[in-house]
Amino acid sequence: MRNKLHVFIKQFGLPRIIIVSFLLSLCVLAIIYNLSIAGLLSDTLVRTGMHGVLVLAMVPGILCGIGLNFGLPLGILCGLIGGLISIELDLVGFTALFTAILVSIPIAVVVGWGYGILLNKVKGSEMMVATYAGFSAVSLMSIGWMILPFKSDEIAWIIGGGLRTTITLTERYDKILNNFAAINIGNLTIPTGLLLFLITMNFIVWIILRSKAGIAMKAVGDNPRFATASGLNVNKYRIFGAILSTVLGAIGIIVYSQSFGFIQLYQAPMFMGFSAVAAILIGGATVKKASISHVFIGTFLFQGLLVVALPVANKMLTEGSLAEITRIIVSNGIILYALTQVGGGE
Protein backbone atom coordinates (compact mmCIF):
# COMPACT_ATOMS: atom_id res chain seq x y z
CA MET A 1 0.00 0.00 0.00
CA ARG A 2 2.72 2.37 1.10
CA ASN A 3 4.68 1.36 -1.94
CA LYS A 4 1.76 1.98 -4.28
CA LEU A 5 1.30 5.43 -2.82
CA HIS A 6 4.97 6.09 -3.34
CA VAL A 7 4.80 5.04 -6.97
CA PHE A 8 1.71 7.18 -7.50
CA ILE A 9 3.39 10.25 -6.02
CA LYS A 10 6.44 9.67 -8.17
CA GLN A 11 4.44 9.25 -11.34
CA PHE A 12 2.05 12.12 -10.82
CA GLY A 13 4.75 14.36 -9.38
CA LEU A 14 4.79 16.02 -5.98
CA PRO A 15 4.39 19.56 -7.37
CA ARG A 16 1.21 18.61 -9.14
CA ILE A 17 -0.15 16.92 -6.04
CA ILE A 18 0.52 20.11 -4.06
CA ILE A 19 -1.19 22.28 -6.68
CA VAL A 20 -4.17 19.94 -6.94
CA SER A 21 -4.63 19.86 -3.17
CA PHE A 22 -4.38 23.66 -3.05
CA LEU A 23 -7.03 23.87 -5.77
CA LEU A 24 -9.27 21.41 -3.93
CA SER A 25 -8.98 23.32 -0.66
CA LEU A 26 -9.91 26.52 -2.51
CA CYS A 27 -12.94 24.71 -3.94
CA VAL A 28 -13.99 23.66 -0.43
CA LEU A 29 -13.69 27.28 0.64
CA ALA A 30 -15.73 28.31 -2.39
CA ILE A 31 -18.52 25.93 -1.33
CA ILE A 32 -18.35 27.26 2.24
CA TYR A 33 -18.68 30.81 0.93
CA ASN A 34 -21.61 29.66 -1.16
CA LEU A 35 -20.08 30.48 -4.55
CA SER A 36 -21.49 28.87 -7.68
CA ILE A 37 -19.31 25.89 -8.48
CA ALA A 38 -20.87 25.51 -11.94
CA GLY A 39 -20.05 29.14 -12.69
CA LEU A 40 -16.48 28.69 -11.54
CA LEU A 41 -16.10 25.57 -13.65
CA SER A 42 -17.47 27.34 -16.73
CA ASP A 43 -14.98 30.14 -16.20
CA THR A 44 -12.17 27.63 -15.80
CA LEU A 45 -13.08 25.90 -19.04
CA VAL A 46 -13.23 29.20 -20.92
CA ARG A 47 -9.88 30.30 -19.57
CA THR A 48 -8.34 26.91 -20.33
CA GLY A 49 -9.40 27.22 -23.96
CA MET A 50 -8.33 30.86 -24.00
CA HIS A 51 -4.78 30.23 -22.76
CA GLY A 52 -4.34 26.71 -24.09
CA VAL A 53 -2.73 27.59 -27.41
CA LEU A 54 -0.30 30.00 -25.74
CA VAL A 55 0.73 27.22 -23.38
CA LEU A 56 0.98 24.82 -26.32
CA ALA A 57 3.51 27.23 -27.83
CA MET A 58 5.90 26.18 -25.05
CA VAL A 59 6.04 22.57 -26.27
CA PRO A 60 8.11 22.94 -29.47
CA GLY A 61 10.46 25.34 -27.68
CA ILE A 62 11.15 22.87 -24.91
CA LEU A 63 11.48 19.91 -27.27
CA CYS A 64 13.90 21.57 -29.68
CA GLY A 65 16.22 22.53 -26.85
CA ILE A 66 15.74 26.30 -26.56
CA GLY A 67 13.98 25.70 -23.25
CA LEU A 68 10.95 27.55 -21.95
CA ASN A 69 10.03 30.16 -24.51
CA PHE A 70 10.04 33.32 -22.45
CA GLY A 71 10.14 35.16 -25.77
CA LEU A 72 6.49 34.33 -26.37
CA PRO A 73 5.60 38.07 -26.65
CA LEU A 74 7.33 37.99 -30.05
CA GLY A 75 4.71 35.57 -31.33
CA ILE A 76 1.98 37.48 -29.57
CA LEU A 77 2.96 40.70 -31.37
CA CYS A 78 2.70 38.90 -34.72
CA GLY A 79 -0.76 37.68 -33.78
CA LEU A 80 -1.81 41.19 -32.78
CA ILE A 81 -0.73 42.54 -36.17
CA GLY A 82 -2.81 39.82 -37.85
CA GLY A 83 -5.80 40.70 -35.69
CA LEU A 84 -5.50 44.41 -36.56
CA ILE A 85 -5.19 43.73 -40.28
CA SER A 86 -8.35 41.66 -40.31
CA ILE A 87 -10.23 44.57 -38.69
CA GLU A 88 -8.63 47.04 -41.09
CA LEU A 89 -9.96 44.88 -43.94
CA ASP A 90 -13.39 45.28 -42.32
CA LEU A 91 -14.05 41.57 -41.96
CA VAL A 92 -16.45 40.04 -39.45
CA GLY A 93 -17.17 36.65 -37.94
CA PHE A 94 -15.21 33.51 -38.73
CA THR A 95 -13.77 35.13 -41.88
CA ALA A 96 -12.21 37.81 -39.69
CA LEU A 97 -10.89 35.28 -37.18
CA PHE A 98 -9.29 33.00 -39.74
CA THR A 99 -7.96 35.87 -41.83
CA ALA A 100 -6.28 37.19 -38.69
CA ILE A 101 -4.70 33.78 -38.13
CA LEU A 102 -3.65 33.32 -41.77
CA VAL A 103 -2.11 36.80 -41.96
CA SER A 104 -0.21 36.40 -38.73
CA ILE A 105 1.36 33.04 -39.61
CA PRO A 106 3.80 34.26 -42.32
CA ILE A 107 4.77 37.21 -40.12
CA ALA A 108 5.39 34.83 -37.23
CA VAL A 109 7.45 32.53 -39.44
CA VAL A 110 9.80 35.37 -40.37
CA VAL A 111 10.04 36.65 -36.80
CA GLY A 112 10.51 33.12 -35.42
CA TRP A 113 13.28 32.48 -37.91
CA GLY A 114 15.20 35.55 -36.77
CA TYR A 115 14.46 34.68 -33.14
CA GLY A 116 15.84 31.19 -33.72
CA ILE A 117 19.05 32.58 -35.19
CA LEU A 118 19.41 34.82 -32.15
CA LEU A 119 18.90 31.89 -29.77
CA ASN A 120 21.47 29.80 -31.66
CA LYS A 121 24.03 32.48 -30.90
CA VAL A 122 23.41 32.35 -27.15
CA LYS A 123 23.29 28.63 -26.47
CA GLY A 124 23.18 27.91 -22.77
CA SER A 125 21.45 31.10 -21.74
CA GLU A 126 18.45 31.01 -24.05
CA MET A 127 15.84 31.62 -21.41
CA MET A 128 17.40 34.80 -20.05
CA VAL A 129 18.02 36.20 -23.51
CA ALA A 130 14.53 35.19 -24.64
CA THR A 131 12.96 37.04 -21.72
CA TYR A 132 14.67 40.26 -22.68
CA ALA A 133 14.14 39.72 -26.40
CA GLY A 134 10.42 39.59 -25.55
CA PHE A 135 10.60 42.71 -23.38
CA SER A 136 12.49 44.72 -25.98
CA ALA A 137 10.18 43.65 -28.77
CA VAL A 138 7.14 44.72 -26.77
CA SER A 139 8.72 48.10 -26.07
CA LEU A 140 9.77 48.52 -29.67
CA MET A 141 6.30 47.71 -30.89
CA SER A 142 4.88 50.28 -28.46
CA ILE A 143 6.51 52.78 -30.79
CA GLY A 144 5.29 50.70 -33.71
CA TRP A 145 1.66 50.97 -32.59
CA MET A 146 2.06 54.76 -32.63
CA ILE A 147 3.23 54.95 -36.21
CA LEU A 148 1.68 52.02 -38.07
CA PRO A 149 -0.65 53.35 -40.78
CA PHE A 150 -3.93 51.74 -39.68
CA LYS A 151 -6.89 53.84 -40.67
CA SER A 152 -9.95 52.08 -39.25
CA ASP A 153 -11.79 54.13 -36.62
CA GLU A 154 -12.04 51.07 -34.43
CA ILE A 155 -8.28 50.75 -34.25
CA ALA A 156 -6.86 54.26 -34.40
CA TRP A 157 -7.60 57.14 -32.11
CA ILE A 158 -9.99 59.48 -33.86
CA ILE A 159 -8.07 62.50 -32.66
CA GLY A 160 -4.28 62.48 -32.68
CA GLY A 161 -2.06 59.68 -33.94
CA GLY A 162 -1.44 56.08 -33.04
CA LEU A 163 -3.58 53.11 -32.14
CA ARG A 164 -5.91 52.65 -29.19
CA THR A 165 -4.63 50.74 -26.15
CA THR A 166 -7.69 48.50 -26.15
CA ILE A 167 -9.66 47.59 -29.24
CA THR A 168 -13.16 46.18 -28.85
CA LEU A 169 -14.07 43.14 -30.89
CA THR A 170 -17.81 43.25 -30.17
CA GLU A 171 -18.62 44.01 -33.81
CA ARG A 172 -16.02 41.60 -35.17
CA TYR A 173 -15.43 38.18 -33.68
CA ASP A 174 -16.02 38.57 -29.98
CA LYS A 175 -16.46 35.10 -28.36
CA ILE A 176 -17.22 33.57 -31.72
CA LEU A 177 -15.43 30.34 -30.85
CA ASN A 178 -16.74 30.29 -27.28
CA ASN A 179 -20.33 30.45 -28.47
CA PHE A 180 -19.93 28.00 -31.34
CA ALA A 181 -22.05 24.98 -30.43
CA ALA A 182 -21.85 25.92 -26.75
CA ILE A 183 -23.66 23.55 -24.44
CA ASN A 184 -25.59 24.77 -21.41
CA ILE A 185 -26.27 22.40 -18.54
CA GLY A 186 -27.91 24.40 -15.79
CA ASN A 187 -25.43 27.05 -14.78
CA LEU A 188 -22.57 25.23 -16.48
CA THR A 189 -21.59 26.43 -19.95
CA ILE A 190 -19.21 24.40 -22.04
CA PRO A 191 -17.44 26.52 -24.70
CA THR A 192 -17.42 23.70 -27.25
CA GLY A 193 -15.97 25.62 -30.20
CA LEU A 194 -13.13 27.02 -28.14
CA LEU A 195 -12.19 23.64 -26.71
CA LEU A 196 -12.47 21.99 -30.14
CA PHE A 197 -10.11 24.59 -31.55
CA LEU A 198 -7.63 23.91 -28.75
CA ILE A 199 -7.86 20.16 -29.32
CA THR A 200 -7.35 20.65 -33.07
CA MET A 201 -4.25 22.76 -32.48
CA ASN A 202 -2.90 20.13 -30.10
CA PHE A 203 -3.61 17.45 -32.67
CA ILE A 204 -1.72 19.38 -35.35
CA VAL A 205 1.29 19.77 -33.07
CA TRP A 206 1.10 16.07 -32.21
CA ILE A 207 1.15 15.23 -35.93
CA ILE A 208 4.12 17.52 -36.51
CA LEU A 209 6.03 15.89 -33.66
CA ARG A 210 5.57 12.50 -35.33
CA SER A 211 6.85 13.71 -38.69
CA LYS A 212 10.44 13.31 -39.82
CA ALA A 213 11.24 16.93 -39.00
CA GLY A 214 9.49 16.70 -35.64
CA ILE A 215 11.41 13.62 -34.65
CA ALA A 216 14.66 15.27 -35.71
CA MET A 217 13.73 18.34 -33.67
CA LYS A 218 13.12 16.22 -30.57
CA ALA A 219 16.47 14.47 -31.01
CA VAL A 220 18.23 17.84 -31.31
CA GLY A 221 16.61 19.05 -28.12
CA ASP A 222 17.25 15.85 -26.23
CA ASN A 223 20.94 15.41 -27.11
CA PRO A 224 22.58 17.79 -29.59
CA ARG A 225 25.77 15.72 -29.75
CA PHE A 226 23.77 12.63 -30.65
CA ALA A 227 21.89 14.62 -33.27
CA THR A 228 25.12 15.87 -34.83
CA ALA A 229 26.47 12.34 -34.97
CA SER A 230 23.24 11.28 -36.68
CA GLY A 231 23.83 13.82 -39.41
CA LEU A 232 21.27 16.37 -38.21
CA ASN A 233 21.81 20.10 -38.44
CA VAL A 234 21.28 21.16 -34.84
CA ASN A 235 20.89 24.87 -35.53
CA LYS A 236 18.36 24.27 -38.29
CA TYR A 237 16.03 22.27 -36.10
CA ARG A 238 16.35 24.70 -33.23
CA ILE A 239 15.20 27.43 -35.62
CA PHE A 240 12.36 25.14 -36.71
CA GLY A 241 11.28 24.83 -33.07
CA ALA A 242 11.51 28.58 -32.51
CA ILE A 243 9.36 29.24 -35.60
CA LEU A 244 6.77 26.71 -34.50
CA SER A 245 6.62 28.23 -31.05
CA THR A 246 6.29 31.77 -32.41
CA VAL A 247 3.52 30.79 -34.83
CA LEU A 248 1.60 29.09 -32.01
CA GLY A 249 2.08 32.23 -29.92
CA ALA A 250 0.53 34.29 -32.72
CA ILE A 251 -2.45 31.98 -33.11
CA GLY A 252 -2.73 31.78 -29.33
CA ILE A 253 -3.18 35.51 -28.84
CA ILE A 254 -5.88 35.70 -31.52
CA VAL A 255 -7.85 32.95 -29.76
CA TYR A 256 -7.22 34.71 -26.48
CA SER A 257 -8.48 38.04 -27.85
CA GLN A 258 -11.68 36.60 -29.30
CA SER A 259 -12.51 35.06 -25.94
CA PHE A 260 -11.48 38.18 -24.03
CA GLY A 261 -13.41 40.45 -26.42
CA PHE A 262 -10.60 42.96 -26.79
CA ILE A 263 -7.26 43.29 -28.48
CA GLN A 264 -4.77 44.84 -26.07
CA LEU A 265 -1.76 46.68 -27.44
CA TYR A 266 1.28 48.42 -25.98
CA GLN A 267 2.47 46.96 -22.64
CA ALA A 268 -0.15 44.23 -22.37
CA PRO A 269 1.83 41.35 -23.95
CA MET A 270 4.85 42.06 -21.74
CA PHE A 271 4.28 39.35 -19.13
CA MET A 272 2.05 36.96 -21.01
CA GLY A 273 4.93 34.53 -21.51
CA PHE A 274 5.24 33.98 -17.77
CA SER A 275 1.78 32.57 -17.16
CA ALA A 276 2.20 30.22 -20.13
CA VAL A 277 5.55 29.04 -18.74
CA ALA A 278 4.02 28.54 -15.30
CA ALA A 279 1.10 26.57 -16.71
CA ILE A 280 3.22 24.08 -18.62
CA LEU A 281 5.54 23.60 -15.65
CA ILE A 282 2.61 22.91 -13.36
CA GLY A 283 1.42 20.45 -15.97
CA GLY A 284 4.58 18.44 -15.31
CA ALA A 285 6.90 19.59 -18.06
CA THR A 286 10.57 20.36 -17.42
CA VAL A 287 13.10 22.42 -19.34
CA LYS A 288 13.88 19.30 -21.38
CA LYS A 289 10.63 17.37 -21.57
CA ALA A 290 7.10 18.36 -22.45
CA SER A 291 4.10 16.66 -23.97
CA ILE A 292 0.62 17.51 -25.15
CA SER A 293 -0.87 16.14 -21.94
CA HIS A 294 1.21 18.60 -19.92
CA VAL A 295 -0.51 21.39 -21.84
CA PHE A 296 -4.02 20.26 -20.92
CA ILE A 297 -3.31 19.40 -17.31
CA GLY A 298 -1.17 22.48 -16.70
CA THR A 299 -3.52 25.00 -18.27
CA PHE A 300 -6.53 23.58 -16.48
CA LEU A 301 -4.82 23.57 -13.07
CA PHE A 302 -3.24 27.01 -13.43
CA GLN A 303 -6.37 28.74 -14.72
CA GLY A 304 -8.54 26.81 -12.27
CA LEU A 305 -6.46 28.16 -9.40
CA LEU A 306 -6.77 31.74 -10.61
CA VAL A 307 -10.50 31.46 -11.28
CA VAL A 308 -11.32 29.98 -7.88
CA ALA A 309 -8.82 31.98 -5.85
CA LEU A 310 -10.16 35.39 -6.89
CA PRO A 311 -13.80 35.14 -5.71
CA VAL A 312 -12.71 33.29 -2.60
CA ALA A 313 -10.24 36.06 -1.82
CA ASN A 314 -13.00 38.59 -2.52
CA LYS A 315 -15.23 36.96 0.07
CA MET A 316 -12.45 36.63 2.61
CA LEU A 317 -11.09 40.14 2.26
CA THR A 318 -13.90 42.57 1.64
CA GLU A 319 -11.49 45.49 2.06
CA GLY A 320 -11.53 47.36 -1.31
CA SER A 321 -8.32 46.73 -3.20
CA LEU A 322 -7.05 43.84 -1.10
CA ALA A 323 -8.67 41.30 -3.43
CA GLU A 324 -6.75 42.63 -6.41
CA ILE A 325 -3.55 42.46 -4.40
CA THR A 326 -4.37 38.90 -3.39
CA ARG A 327 -4.96 37.99 -7.02
CA ILE A 328 -1.52 39.30 -7.96
CA ILE A 329 0.09 37.49 -5.05
CA VAL A 330 -1.62 34.21 -5.95
CA SER A 331 -0.87 34.34 -9.67
CA ASN A 332 2.74 35.41 -9.23
CA GLY A 333 3.09 32.97 -6.38
CA ILE A 334 2.04 30.12 -8.64
CA ILE A 335 4.44 31.30 -11.34
CA LEU A 336 7.25 31.47 -8.78
CA TYR A 337 6.43 28.04 -7.46
CA ALA A 338 6.27 26.62 -10.98
CA LEU A 339 9.64 28.12 -11.85
CA THR A 340 11.24 26.43 -8.85
CA GLN A 341 10.06 23.17 -10.41
CA VAL A 342 12.02 23.78 -13.62
CA GLY A 343 14.27 20.81 -12.91
CA GLY A 344 11.18 18.70 -12.36
CA GLY A 345 10.97 15.03 -11.52
CA GLU A 346 11.15 12.30 -14.11
Partner: peptide, 9 residues
Protein backbone atom coordinates in the same frame (compact mmCIF):
# COMPACT_ATOMS: atom_id res chain seq x y z
CA UNK B 1 25.79 8.06 -22.95
CA UNK B 2 26.92 11.42 -24.31
CA UNK B 3 26.88 10.86 -28.06
CA UNK B 4 25.61 7.34 -28.61
CA UNK B 5 22.12 7.44 -27.17
CA UNK B 6 19.01 9.46 -26.60
CA UNK B 7 18.76 8.40 -22.99
CA UNK B 8 15.13 9.37 -22.42
CA UNK B 9 13.86 7.94 -25.67
Amino acid sequence: RGVGLLLDT
